[in-house]
Simulated assay, not measured.
Amino acid sequence: MIRDIIKYPTPPSVQYATDVRFFNEEIHSLIEDMKDTIKANSLDGLAAFQIGSYYNIVVVKEYDGKYLELINPRIISTNGKVTTTERTAYFPGLSANVTRYESISLVYQDREGDNHSLKADGALSILLQRKIDYTFGSSFLNKLTKDEKKIFQKKLEFGSDVAISESCPTTFKRDYIIKAINISMIVMVILLIGSFFIDNLWSYQLNLSFGVVGLNIVYFFYAQYEGKKFTSCTSCQIGNIIGTAVVSLVKLTLLMSLSYFIM
């Protein structure tokens, strides 16, 4: 039977998993439900904790499609450290960079209560560590560094897996468009001053004004596209973009009005 997986922000129904003492049909049925749930959700593994059971059971899918059943798993030794990008069904659609042990040794029991030992490395080691975390009422959130946790909290807030900066960048590519606009308007001021000494500069002034209008249009649309890349500060950026474009056009209008009467 396919079971519902507990997902954020719903807290797990139990705080710590309880070791299995009686290896009966109830346990066998639970393990089969876990397999069905893994298959239905295309998961790599599942802890009974994740479907609201208080039993200390972990089931993971192996490369050959078979399932490894671990009852009362305990990590007894570890070796090395590795940082990988992890995902978990509890935080659907989100990922985080987590540092874990590169290889582990553990002991566990099967559904008949027989004892076994296992050495795991690579992806299997990471998967087992993540699932065993749940048996202690934990998730990878508790394994994150201080900086990574801040980033992940932002992801939770916005519901997005996009890497979110703690603050908006101070420079953007759109700044080059603003520089081009400012340079063009400086040239227009020079032409205005030059008109006191040289005739027939109005056509140049008019063409430059069209260029400035065009640059403002390019700036307005490109700046919005660039701003959407930074989810944490999109709203304030849109306000700045509109304000910058309006100020630029007001300056151009005043400059062209003055040029019309003088030139």
Score class of each variant (00 low, 15 high):
Lys61Arg: 15
Leu46Arg: 01
Phe49Asp: 02
Thr78Met: 03
Lys81Phe: 00
Gly45Val: 08
Glu62Asp: 14
Glu69Gly: 00
Gly65Cys: 06
Tyr90Gln: 10
Ile75Asn: 04
Thr88Asn: 04
Ser77Leu: 06
Ser42Ala: 13
Gln50His: 09
Ile57Gln: 14
Gly80Lys: 08
Tyr63Val: 15
Pro92Ser: 14
Asp64Glu: 13
Ile51Met: 11
Tyr63Lys: 14
Gly80Trp: 07
Asn79Met: 13
Leu43Asp: 05
Leu43Cys: 06
Ser53Leu: 08
Thr78Gly: 08
Arg87Ser: 13
Ile51Thr: 06
Ala48Arg: 06
Val58Phe: 07
Tyr90Ile: 11
Ile75Pro: 02
Ser77Trp: 00
Val82Met: 00
Ser53Gln: 09
Tyr63Ser: 13
Asn56Lys: 14
Val60Ile: 15
Asp64Val: 14
Gly45Gln: 03
Tyr63Pro: 10
Thr85Gln: 09
Tyr54Thr: 02
Tyr54His: 12
Gln50Pro: 06
Thr88Met: 04
Thr85Met: 11
Ser53Phe: 03
Gly93Met: 15
Asn72Lys: 04
Leu94Val: 10
Ala89Arg: 03
Thr88Gln: 11
Gly52Trp: 07
Gln50Ser: 10
Asp44Phe: 04
Ser95Tyr: 15
Ile75Phe: 08
Ile71Pro: 01
Phe49Met: 09
Gly45Arg: 02
Glu69Thr: 12
Asp64Thr: 13
Val82Arg: 07
Glu62His: 05
Ile76Glu: 01
Phe49Pro: 04
Pro73Gln: 06
Glu86Ala: 04
Tyr67Ala: 14
Gln50Ala: 10
Ser77Arg: 12
Arg87Asp: 02
Val82Tyr: 04
Val58Cys: 02
Ala89Pro: 10
Thr88Val: 08
Tyr63Phe: 01
Gly45Met: 05
Ser42Leu: 12
Ile76Met: 05
Ala48Asn: 03
Leu94Tyr: 08
Val58Met: 03
Glu86Leu: 05
Ile71Gln: 00
Leu43Thr: 07
Val82His: 01
Arg74Glu: 11
Thr83Glu: 10
Gly65Pro: 14
Gly65Trp: 07
